[in-house]
């Protein structure tokens, strides 16, 4: 549906996105905003095509792409309702549903300066949704929204976003990406990596692995590194685990629902907090249930 082949000082790479929900994941400063601005047509540098048609000669307002920046610029002298109506192309009934999902009725007749940061972000989101976009770019657009509202909004987007349209949202939170996206694409230091199916993502760089929650990597051979993730580690030797290594783990209960783990393996020590789990036999072994093996290790190990 959407193909990008970008080459600018801030971001390079190419990717093709199918309809659905796509997460653009990267640390702050990785180039997420730069990429979005290129796609929206606010900056130039590279080629963007939609349904095989190049958008190179199309101005931002002529593109089928709507963009919500992280710090939205709501029109300061117009009420939220007026601004939404100004851009509205969506059916009234559908819009009404979104307004109530985003809990925006009480803010409808207010000016942007009377709104908190999170409320402004919600208003900016409804403004973009009201345009009935074919492609919607959300640049950490819910970062200031409080948790209950945020979860409700994501839930609604996940459920109501049309199957034939594309929503790309940027985040530095892996859990958000994993939870809400069908496809995840990773951006590091201005380099755009190819999108991967969210169900089956393998880390492409050490930084990405850390972002995904991996604790670190231990070398198996000079070119093979085994990445350790709290969710796939078992204390002791579990017969069903595909990979059992020598190592010693200790568990200290913190509360009935969480425990502090310490793992000594190959001269390294890893610590994390997680739910208490059963331990297997042999306390000088650890089990890896879902081994992730990559040709790279932790380049920037401290």
């Amino acid at each position: 549906m959407l193909s990008v082949n970008v080459k600018s000082p801030h971001v390079t790479g190419q990717a093709t996105f199918a309809p659905g929900m796509v997460a653009l994941v990267g640390l702050s400063g990785a180039g997420k905003t730069s990429l979005f601005r290129l796609i929206a047509g606010l900056d130039i540098g590279g080629d963007v095509t939609v349904h095989g048609q190049s958008l190179a000669s199309r101005h931002p307002w002529e593109r089928p792409i709507r963009y919500v920046p992280q710090r939205p610029s709501l029109v300061p002298h117009k009420t939220i309702g007026s601004q939404v109506t100004w851009v509205q192309r969506m059916d009234n009934a559908v819009l009404k549903e979104w307004i109530s999902l985003l809990a925006l009725e009480p803010l409808w007749h207010r000016l942007p300066r009377e709104l908190s940061g999170g409320e402004q972000q919600r208003a900016a989101l409804i403004r973009a949704l009201a345009t009935d976009p074919e492609i919607l770019l959300l640049d950490e657009a819910l970062s200031a929204v409080d948790r209950p509202h945020r979860l409700a909004i994501w839930d609604a987007l996940k459920g109501l976003w049309p199957r034939d349209r594309l929503l790309i949202f940027s985040t530095h939170d892996w859990t958000d990406a994993e939870t809400w996206a069908d496809t995840i694409t990773y951006l590091e230091a201005g380099r755009l990596h190819a999108p991967q199916t969210a169900r089956n993502v393998t880390p492409l760089t050490a930084q990405m692995a850390r972002l995904m929650g991996f604790l670190g990597a231990i070398p198996l051979t000079p070119n093979q590194w085994l990445w350790l993730h709290p969710a796939s580690l078992g204390v002791g030797a579990w017969p069903e685990a595909p990979c059992i290594l020598p190592g010693r783990a200790s568990v200290t209960a913190l509360t009935p629902l969480s425990a502090r783990y310490t793992l000594h393996i190959q001269g390294r020590t890893f610590r994390w907090t997680g739910p208490p789990r059963e331990t297997g036999p042999q306390d000088d072994r650890v089990s890896i249930f879902q081994p992730v093996i990559t040709p790279f290790g932790e380049e920037n190990r401290e």
């Binding site: 929206a40 931002p60 307002w61 709507r66 710090r71 029109v75």
Partner: peptide, 27 residues
């Protein structure tokens, strides 16, 4: 008057003329 006000309106499908009348002129 911040440039982002114009850019946001453009990215919502509004032409520079529409943006001028609704967003910029009153300011």
């Amino acid at each position: 008057i911040p440039r982002s006000l114009e850019e946001d309106a453009w990215a919502l499908g509004k032409t520079p003329r529409e943006t001028f009348r609704y967003v910029l002129w009153p300011l």
